[in-house]
Structure formats: C-alpha cells, structure tokens
Computed example of a mutant assay.
Amino acid sequence: MSAVPFSKISTPLNALFATIGLLVVAALTTQGLTGQERLVFELLLAAIWLAYVLQLSGTLLSRHRWSGGIPALVIDLLAVLVPAAAFLFVGSRDRNLYCAIWLLKPLRDSTFFRLLAKVVANESRNLIGVTSVFGIVLFGAALAGYILERDVQPDKFGSIPQAMWWAVVTLSTTGYGDEIPQSLAGRVLGGLVMMSGIGIFALWAGILATGFYEEVRRQDFVRNWQLVAAVPLFQKLGSAALIEIVRALRPRIVPAGAVICRKGDVGDQMFFIVEGRVTVATPDHPVELGAGNFFGEMALISGEPRSATVTAATEVSLLSLYAVDFQMLSSSSPEIAETIRKTALERRGGPPKE
C-alpha cells in the first residue's frame, strides 16, 4: 500500500502519538522496571517512530507535500532522524530520551504557534527594546549586588557572575532564597530590583497581548471582508463603504436545524446569508432562501416583532446587522438601505417605496 495516506495524520492523532511517546520516555527513566516492561515500552516507542516514518514518507511522496509548509516538513524530519541517530550513536541508557523531540509534533499544524510567530515578528522591535532594558537592569543589579555584598558574603557575591544568579532570581521575582542580601543597602537594592522586574515583565506581557489583539483583529477583518464581498448586495460598494460594512456586520455560523429567530420575538438584528440555506415558515408555505439573500429586516425597519420563524435548512454562514448599525448604513449607503426597505415592503405585501 502507498504510504501517502499517512501524510494526513490528523493534528489530534499527532498530539496523541506524541503524548504517549513522551509518557513512555518518562516511564523509562523510573527505577525498578523489569526487563519485560522496558522491552514493551521500547517497542511502543518503535511503533510510534514507525508511524512517523510512514507519515514522512507520505509527505515526501505526495504532490501536495509542501501544503503544510517548510516548518511542518522540518518537524517531520526531526521526529524521524533524531531518534534514529540516537539509536545508532548513543548509549542504550540515554537513547530513548531523544524521542523527546516529539514534543514538536503537536506544533506542526498548530495555528496558535503560527499566530505567535506573526505576533513576535510584528512586535520584534518593542520586544528587543524591553529585552535590552532587562539586560541592562540585570547587569546593573548584579554589579551593585557584588559591590554591596562581596565583603559580607564572599562565597555568594564574590564575583559578578555569582551575583548574576541572585539578580536573575530577584528580577524575575522567583525568590529561591539561596542567596539573600545581608546588608541594609543590599536589601534596599533587592526591593528595587523586584519592582523593576514586575514592570519589565508587565511590559513584555502588554506588548504580546496588544500584538495578539491586533493580529486577531486583522485576521478577523480580512475574513469578514471576504464574507461581506460575497454578498451580492454589497458588491457594488466602493472600498470606503465596504470597510464600514465590514466593521458593522458580525459573522455567525448556525448548524443545520437550529432556529435562527422565532415568530413573535423582538428582533434587534437582520441577517445576510453568505453560504447555506434557511427556511422561512410563512403562513402560506415555507420559503427557502439561499446565499445572497437576507431576512429579519422588518424588525429593524418597523420595530415590529418577528413575523416568521427562520430555521437553518443546512449549516449556514450568516452576517448579522444590528439596528444601530443599520442606521449607520442608512446614512452612509442609502441605496442599500433603500433596497432593504423595498424588499421588506414587498415581502409584507405592500407597495415598494419609490
């Protein structure tokens, strides 16, 4: 059989294999294992390694082998080559430890780590700046600690490299307690270093949090733009008006069979269908609406309760527009608002506005 299907090992299965492998590696370091137990564990590691070999072979033989990107291929190679090299060149006691490279396996398809890489790249200048401040404070604290404590504790602060350990522990506010300033000046210095550490780590956290927020918002904007552009009603808009619509509309996925709105409910939003179909339970007979249509507009125009129950006939991708945003749309794009009003009146049975 071809090995190609093994290139499609799912992310959860990759994570499961890696978890089992790492637990086995940990188990092999415990004392008192019998020879039979050790053999079973090593055979389990070999089975996981073989699965990764087949996955790598499938990736290399597939026409779409680069679809996962270079990092995924590199991780697949390391997962196979590092344990193999350890088996050939490392002693039997430690060779199994090299299977810990499988820690990387759950990362190969992770969108989070791709997002993290983008955030770090985007915020690299700020992160480098804060890291530089950290290094300056670290060396300055070690230098000051050496000067203040070298005569009191020569065994712990007898050199700047020795004092550097105290500075790292204090600046990170870990506080192991193995090195403690004895002089009053040294303790004042320790307090200042602790407060500096809190500020520096807060800056790091703030930069990363802001970077994540901006990147997620950017990705959401691009996704929403693609969804809005797929609605025929908005395709004639210019880019400026489309940006306003993208900011106003909220994407939503509804599973098949779910009720989107019920007759008689008070409505504060209308919906545009991007993909899928919905069923409108009208008094005469059910009406099915597909991609490009909209519904629920009467609640925004007249403020009346919902006139029909709408159910998702299939899984449906929707864009919702709230009443306050509809007022904004009416002022920025009156032609679209007028089209919505005319459609609402036609569905109600009244004459459209001219």
Rank of each mutant, 00 (worst) to 15 (best):
D76V: 07
V24T: 12
R262I: 13
L50E: 07
F157Q: 00
A209T: 12
G197C: 05
G158V: 08
R38H: 00
F295N: 02
I273W: 00
A308S: 15
R277D: 13
G238P: 06
L171C: 04
I198D: 14
A299Y: 03
A163E: 05
Y213G: 14
Q31I: 14
T309W: 03
L143N: 04
G177C: 11
S2T: 11
D284P: 02
Y322C: 13
D220E: 14
R262V: 13
N224L: 12
G69T: 10
S110F: 11
G69A: 08
L233T: 11
F212I: 01
D109L: 15
L81V: 14
A51E: 12
Q226V: 09
F17Y: 09
V25R: 01
N224F: 03
L103C: 10
F41E: 12
L56W: 00
V259D: 02
V193L: 03
L33G: 01
P71V: 13
V188D: 06
G267M: 08
V259S: 02
A313Q: 15
L143A: 10
Q269L: 10
R218N: 11
L148M: 15
A344R: 02
L78H: 06
A46C: 07
W49Y: 12
V216E: 14
G238A: 00
T111M: 08
V74C: 04
E179G: 02
A47C: 10
S330H: 06
V324R: 13
G140Y: 07
S7Y: 04
F17N: 04
A313R: 15
G290D: 07
A3R: 07
V310L: 05
F17H: 05
S239E: 13
I260S: 01
T34W: 08
W49P: 12
F17P: 04
V287C: 14
V231P: 02
V274T: 13
A163R: 02
W102K: 05
A142I: 00
R247T: 13
I147H: 02
L208P: 00
G257Y: 09
V246N: 01
G32A: 14
I136A: 00
L44V: 15
I75P: 00
T339N: 12
C99Y: 09
V188C: 05
L22W: 05
T210H: 14
V119S: 11
S67Q: 11
L319N: 10
L56V: 01
V74K: 09
N126I: 10
F89T: 09
A167Q: 01
V280H: 03
E297P: 06
T30H: 11
K156L: 08
Q55M: 12
F212H: 04
N293Q: 07
I301W: 04
S302D: 11
F87Q: 12
V53D: 05
V152N: 11
A85M: 14
G197M: 00
G35Q: 10
G91A: 11
P5D: 06
L249K: 11
L249Y: 03
L321H: 02
R65T: 14
A256Y: 10
I200P: 01
P351L: 03
V278E: 09
D268F: 08
G140Q: 06
L88E: 05
G206I: 08
D76K: 15
V4G: 01
W49M: 15
E275Y: 13
P286E: 10
S317T: 15
K342H: 09
G290T: 12
W165Y: 14
A26Y: 15
